[in-house]
Nucleic acid binder design. Structure first.
Lengths: 357, 357
DNA sequence: CTGTTAGCGCTTTCAT
DNA sequence: ATGAAAGCGCTAACAG
């Protein structure tokens, strides 16, 4: 079990480092070598039509001979556009966001945009810093799953700087922009109704703070399902916790300590479910026998190995694809005046954790 | 079940888009407003000492009044350094690399570097393109888990451009540079010896192509364990496959079709194991009863939900941390002449898939 | 402590 | 079809 600083003294091997000397070839070097002006070289590297085939050939030869690669910095500064856009998520390690990010990158790449991926770790301050960096970088647009409603300030900042953005997974009350959402309310309702149909009456809910739209919407769905079934809402059954495994554990522990503890629990997402399950087991109980459990979002690899979580699976890739497409439309001015609000239905997947036969 | 183009016609909501007009405030605007020269403003934003407190105050006031954010493009072009480094992995969605990436980003951020994350999808061409982009961006260094030995060309290209890089997880024969590795050979040997100690004699191996160093090294460990136990190597038991779940399935299917099929299988990594298990189940068999299984790398969330895979877990975060630290040393010229080669031991975790009691 | 002068490497605009 | 001049926004290197 390596300790953190075990590698303070690295094992060393005596081998030469390759000779690295920055080769700073510029457009002028290419121009000189091919006997034309920098402007002509510029035309060649930008596939402008107005270059004679012969000149083009000579320039291209010089380029490959010199191993010239145009500087994006200079080009960006001069053109006043960077061809870069950003994807910001609260946690890349969450399989849901991992999928979102991959899809977004794919679309961006195909449209010839570079993408900068930013992980805020659900930290508002990191998010602020990251957004400032992106402004400094003159990113042309941002696809973002914001930390919470309090991200509004930084988004307004983006808007001030004329950087278009689209929200994914989460809305923010005062922010009007394109947005790609899951059907949180409907999905939650469906999950909870399923538990009710299984005979549960005391159903817990582990959820993050109310300033995240998905948390609010899913709570709404939870309440709607209960009320439709004539079950009174018991505030003690709603446990607020961080939206990660340790939050899930903490939340579940609190629910289990209740006098009249729930027989079933709905967690706001996959990672919370994970922690909740661990807490159940730590208490010497079992899912679903002692506590049934349903949640939002799947954990793909886990489910492939062991189909356990009954979940409302959201089409993560589509969040990324669509979000990026909408963003590209805005960037390229093709977007309509009115904003898009896309709501993607989830897929209800019944597995073992809910205890359905 | 949403079809791909169901969203060709997005639902629209009539809401105004915030008025976005690019605010192009430059250092000169700030200079003008605060009544100093651009140079003084530059000094202020760079925390240079040589500015009187009063001037500094006025400048800072102007900055916040104008909402000025210095352009990284211009700064980079002028300073001839971008403060950007890149992390390249073959698959961010692989929990192992997800962890690597997060750790790397953390270290980079603390050293005030921006990081660009690139996912090559194990595609050599994507890798080449990505590296070209990074050169164009004038990234200052690269931490890379290369696709295969054939990545050598693009790494040499990096070196030509004076971009330092460190290899993680995988070495490349002709490339001498800092590298952070796991103990593939030793780890593989330990895994296979464990299977042997459980009584297995026919042990299969599902592995990717031999031009990836980890594949070679793990095969070496596999063979060493067999030979130490006096078990003859049967080439039919070594299945080559893509290093992902579908590759794992394909590989396992081939092994199961053998006349004298293996009673245990070692897979080169976590994702291959996943596919292999699916194939076993699809064949109506069970792990570990019909086929025992061990692999490299854990699938964290899956294991938390259901501790199943017997695996050689590698300290992924340390790969990222150390790799980035080494890179930073190189970038900042603090690195020693000789290269570092760090080999991190794995942790052998016995769970159910190997069938140990 | 502050300002001036030159670029950084590319592209835009306008000539030719 | 090609080139010259100017400038994108910033900072290094010198003044003063």
């Amino acid at each position: 079990m390596p300790k953190q600083n075990q590698y303070e003294f690295w094992p060393k091997i005596v081998l030469p480092i390759p000779n690295m000397s920055p080769s700073n070839t510029t457009i002028r070097d290419v121009a000189r070598l091919s006997g034309v002006s920098p402007m002509t070289v510029s035309r060649v590297i930008n596939d402008s039509e107005r270059v004679s085939p012969e000149t083009r050939r000579r320039v291209e030869e010089a380029i490959s001979e010199l191993g010239y690669v145009p500087s994006r910095l200079a080009r960006g500064l001069s053109r006043q556009r960077t061809g870069t856009l950003a994807v910001i998520v609260p946690d890349v390690a969450n399989p849901f966001f991992t999928a979102v990010v991959r899809a977004a990158e794919e679309v961006a790449r195909r449209a010839d945009y570079q993408v900068i991926l930013c992980d805020t770790r659900a930290d508002l301050n990191v998010e602020r810093d990251v957004i400032d960096e992106l402004i400094a970088h003159r990113a042309e647009g941002v696809v973002i799953a914001p930390v919470s409603d309090r991200s509004a300030a930084q988004l307004r900042r983006l808007a001030e700087f004329g950087v278009p953005f689209v929200l994914i997974d989460r809305t923010i009350p005062e922010i009007d922009c394109d947005v790609v959402l899951g059907d949180s309310t409907g999905g939650a309702r469906q999950l909870v109704e399923h538990l009710i149909s299984l005979g549960h009456r005391r159903i817990g809910f582990i959820v993050e703070s109310d300033d995240v739209s998905t948390a609010r919407d899913r709570r709404r769905g939870y309440e709607a399902a209960l009320s439709a079934a004539g079950i009174a809402l018991d505030p003690a059954l709603v446990a607020h916790a961080a939206p990660d495994p340790s939050g899930g554990s903490a939340g579940m522990r609190r629910l289990l300590e209740l006098e009249d503890r729930p027989t079933a629990v709905f967690t706001v997402n996959n990672l919370v479910a994970l922690g909740a399950i661990e807490a159940v087991r730590a208490a010497g109980l079992e899912v679903p026998d002692d506590v049934a459990l349903v949640c939002f979002d799947d954990i793909e690899y886990a489910s492939r190995l062991y189909p356990f979580l009954t979940a409302m699976e959201q089409p993560a890739q589509t969040f990324g694809t669509l979000g990026t497409q909408l963003l590209l439309e805005r960037i390229e001015g093709r977007g309509p005046e009115r904003r898009h609000e896309v709501v993607l239905p989830g897929e209800f997947i019944v597995r073992k954790s809910c205890g359905a036969k």
